[in-house]
Amino acid sequence: MSTGGSTTQPVFDEASRIVVAAALDAQVPGASDLGAVAYVEQLLTALDHDPPRIWAAPEASGAEWLELGAWERAAWAQRIDAMRVAYARVAAGDATEADRRMLHDHACEATYGDPAYGGNRDRGGWQRIGFPDPMFPPARAAQTVDATPAEAT
């Protein structure tokens, strides 16, 4: 697993990507087809962007992402560091019970959360359960995680 952090550089190498996708699909079948790995990669690299890709801004605001406060940024850095360690365990086949709960959360968020976050590709998660599009969606232009696997490290 790469620890690299640019948006255009995905987080997972090919082997890790396959394991992580399977782990997400084990929680929510079809999650990876709907972009769950891209969702995770966007989250793990969120702070490489300015503004960070943590909170999508509403379409009406004209921006794509909201700014974080200085302390919020620090908290997210800590949280993302912990997630990176957890995903390294997942990729190595050593997921703990807590890791599986994280995978469950991420698979649910990726499948049924707003497409702005990189998952729910083409609103496919919503469509498969008949969930209507929101009246006031966030901006969704920024699904830019490159699907090319990272160099193995």
């Binding site: 909170w55 999508a56 302390w71 800590q78 959360g113 707003d114 976050y117 966030p138």
Partner: peptide, 23 residues
């Protein structure tokens, strides 16, 4: 301010309106 959308991830799962429990 126009900061809010119908966005379950930001509002319910990512503490947009605080407080962040890590802080």
């Amino acid at each position: 301010l126009r900061h809010l959308a119908n966005d379950e991830i930001a509002l319910v799962h990512r503490h947009l309106l605080g407080p962040d429990p890590l802080l």
